[in-house]
Design a protein around this nucleic acid. Sequence first.
DNA 1: TTTTTTGTTCATTTTTATTTGAATTAAAAG
DNA 2: CTTTTAATTCAAATAAAAATGAACAAAAAA
Lengths: 168, 168
Amino acid sequence: MGESLLESTNSRLAPVEVEAIQLFVQFSRALGQPRSIAEIYGMLFVSHVPLSLDDLVERLQLSRGSASQGLKYLRELGAVRPVNRPDSRRVHYEAVAELRNLAGTFLHQQVERHLGDSAARLEKMGRHSQALTGAARRHALARVKLLQSWEKNGRQMLPYLLKMLGRK
Amino acid sequence: MGESLLESTNSRLAPVEVEAIQLFVQFSRALGQPRSIAEIYGMLFVSHVPLSLDDLVERLQLSRGSASQGLKYLRELGAVRPVNRPDSRRVHYEAVAELRNLAGTFLHQQVERHLGDSAARLEKMGRHSQALTGAARRHALARVKLLQSWEKNGRQMLPYLLKMLGRK
DNA sequence: TTTTTTGTTCATTTTTATTTGAATTAAAAG
DNA sequence: CTTTTAATTCAAATAAAAATGAACAAAAAA
């Protein structure tokens, strides 16, 4: 088992770096994202110079597989940007620090992935409710209506929220 | 391995119920909450009559342990409310359907849990940055400043967001 | 009181998510 | 063309999260 980032004596990483990485790891837990991805972003965020995959592997002590997958994810999210350096064959990366794009893309991605077909499901629910009778039916129909209004509110609020996140 | 809620023939649950539960399960995944908790809330949400722990255990085919823990969580969140019925010793529950309180409490809880001490961490980061020199130092200090502005924006936005969602 | 019913806790098991690293592909250098 | 270096993929290993259920507690009924 490898040395933890938490250890107080870590010759690979400066104290600021450890703190910054920790901060992003903590934040990633709130968003339910894997630790390694947060570590990679945190490392690139504090580094004053772009880093290659191998740099990350060495400094964060993670596998090439993790580093590769993590960078792929962050690249697709737009949280990280490849930098070509004429002096090296390796692709180097730097963190994109514009909160607006980052948060917006992330939110959009999450919502699409998890809530894409909720409208269809609600419609289906409505049809099934018709099969019931009496109080159960009345209640089910009222619930579907309520959910539909929640869904509508959510969809209305989302662009507004995204805009709010975009304020510098 | 137990029968899944997804199965088309399910004599325990009506089709509307299956759909509603699925909707909440899907939603819970977006929020990173356990499936069983979403199932319980979904079940109570569609039910036109309050249900006891044992009702939930039977209809959702989950263990008493899960049901108990799930109800505890939902009770503390304020998503579910105990109903005393004079005809039964068992506590029955009904879903609280006010999105405002629910979302607000949830958000507040998550933020406190995950981001509580970020300010302290940033201060520490600032101190560590002083130990660096040259470009690394300048970059680290700029990053700390940026993070502090993110944190400030976040904290400023939170009460506003909570207010939008209806919590104090 | 003792018994029965209801509900909770928590160590263990099960399930799910993440990480690893060997095999593979890609592409530049020789 | 062959060798070397860089990067990715994916099946297997590992770690983390959630569910289970037996043991326990609390409180009403007998």
